[in-house]
Each structure stands twice: as C-alpha cells, then as structure tokens.
C-alpha cells in the first residue's frame, strides 16, 4: 500500500505544517503576503474586466440621460463650492480662536482611496482586502472609512494589498460614544462604551453591540454613535451607526445597546484610508 512517493509526500506535508506552525509572526506574515501575491495577475484581470464592463455600460447610456446627469452634477458642484467657501471661513475662524485659546492645532486628515478586492474566505472573521499596500503608505492600525461611516482598521499589510478588519470582528473593537443632552438640557454629555460583535445574531453583520454603557445614561433608539478616540487607534468623531435598542446587563450593572452600522459591508466597493 505505501510506496516511496507516498512517504515523501506525507513527510513533506507534515514538515511544512510544522514549519508554518512554528514560524515567527513576521516571517509567517511575509509568507502569507508572498502567497497572496501569486494572485495579483488574477485580481488585475478581474479589475480590468470590471472596468471594461463599466465602460461598455457607459457607452450605451443615452445622450439625454448623460445631459441630465451633467446638469444635476453642475448644480451639485455649485452648492458644494458655496459650502466649501463657507467652510474655509469657518476654518479660519476656528484657527484664530484656537490660537487665542492656545489649543493644540489639529492637522487636516489625508485620505487614500482604495478598492475592495475581496472578502475573507473564512466565515468566522469579518475582514476584506483592499488594493493598497505598503507601497502606497499603508500601515497596520490605520483607520478605514467611507462617506457613510467607519469601516474598520488595517490588520495586515502587503506590498500591494492590505487586510482590513471590519467593525464587528472580534479583533476590531472600537471605543465609541453617544452624545446626549444633560438633564438640564444645557450641556451635551458623552456616554462612552465599546463596540463588540453582536452576541445575538452573528450572521447579520450590519448590527453590532455597544456595551459597557453607564447605567445612568439615557440611551434612546435613533441616537448616533461616533468613535470616541479613546482607544488610540480610531480618530474621534467618525460616525459608526445608530442605536436600535437598549437593555440592562448583569442585573443592571451596565447598559448594552444594539447599533445598526452606517456602512453596508455587503456592498463595499471603495473605501478611504486615513493616512498618518
């Protein structure tokens, strides 16, 4: 039954597994990235065919529709330019007041656009792959977001691609806050908590739990949840989602709320990475 090539195959495979198990983390990561690099031609081909499809679709759009879209975009452009002018004034005013108060100056964020190229093939992690790597300035723990809200953080960086852990993955917890009016109604009070995976339904990746909220807080459905910036990874003020409901935990020791995420992870195509 056992012939020589069989023995060689068994010993070789077992050796490889043993080596993989005992590799130092950095070497294991490099090996993973090298293996993933073998798929670059296929991803390139996939992206090129998608672009070709999009171009073909654009080519058959009627001229009237394009003209209507153009007009709508021009109007939107004018509104945005007006808003940008107002924002520039506000920015100047903000800078002047900050200087008067000797407030620490905040630098404007730099964003890098990235395309989503795939999902984690294992169903027990929530992560996606983007087509930007260390060559584009990507680093571990950089924040990833869309216009709708927070997406997650970068967990693995290769030369041309990175792995992003999504909000709701067990390894991507987010320090969050809910802003609400104080009892007197004159001040805003921040209630802080931690975003963790939804304990009830792990299949629905649009819902997460906001846990360890103060039992004295007045959390109501519809309130917006933002990043608090306390963890040291995510900057403050990025929208995460909206409160769905709230319940007492551990015999009223703290509150836990379900949060509907602002970003639909099933339809993610492009994301922004905040550069340091």
């Amino acid at each position: 039954m056992f012939k020589r090539p069989v023995y060689i195959a068994i010993i070789g495979a077992l050796l490889l597994v043993l080596v993989a198990m005992n590799l130092p983390p950095r070497a294991a990561l490099r090996l993973k990235m090298a293996l993933a690099g073998l798929f670059l031609p296929l991803f390139g081909l996939g992206s090129a065919s998608q672009n070709l499809g999009a171009k073909a679709r654009q080519a058959v759009v009627p001229r009237q529709t394009l003209a209507a879209q153009n007009e709508q975009l021009q109007q939107e452009n004018q509104v945005l330019r007006l808003q940008a002018q107002q924002n520039a004034e506000l920015l100047k005013e903000n800078a002047r007041l900050s200087e008067l108060l000797a407030y620490t100056k905040q630098h404007p964020r730099q964003y890098k656009l990235a395309r989503v190229i795939g999902r984690d093939p294992a169903n027990w992690w929530r992560s996606i792959h983007i087509d930007r790597g260390s060559r584009d300035g990507m680093k571990i723990n950089l924040t990833v977001l869309t216009l709708e809200g927070l997406v997650g953080r970068i967990a693995e960086v290769g030369l041309n691609r990175s792995l992003v852990l999504l909000v709701g993955d067990p390894n991507c917890r987010v320090a969050a806050l809910v802003q609400q009016k104080s009892e007197t109604g004159t001040q805003t009070v921040d209630t802080t908590g931690v975003i963790v995976p939804n304990s009830g339904d792990i299949i629905d990746n649009a819902v997460v739990d906001l846990t360890f909220l103060s039992r004295h807080s007045n959390i109501v459905p519809g309130q917006t949840v933002y990043t608090s910036g306390q963890g040291g990874i995510f900057p403050k003020g990025i929208r995460i989602g909206q409160i769905m409901d709230c319940r007492e935990m551990e015999y009223g020791l703290y509150l836990e709320a379900r949060v509907k995420l602002a970003v639909d992870f099933g339809r993610l195509e492009e994301v922004f990475v905040i550069l340091p």
Binding site: A9, I10, G12, A13, L16, V17, A20, M21, L23, A28, L31, K32, M33, L35, A36, L38, F39, G118, D120, P121, A122, W125, S127, H129, A155, E156, L163, L165, D169, N171
Partner: peptide, 23 residues
Amino acid sequence: FCLAVVGGGFFDAFSFNPLGVST
C-alpha cells in the same frame, strides 16, 4: 497532500487565520 498544502496555504494567505490551519 499536495492539494492540502497548496490549497490550505492559499486559503490562509487571504484569511485572518494563522498560516497552516486550513492545511
């Protein structure tokens, strides 16, 4: 064995899994 090593390696390269689990 060949499929397990190569396929598992490829799978783990794209997953958050540690290398070798799928193999």
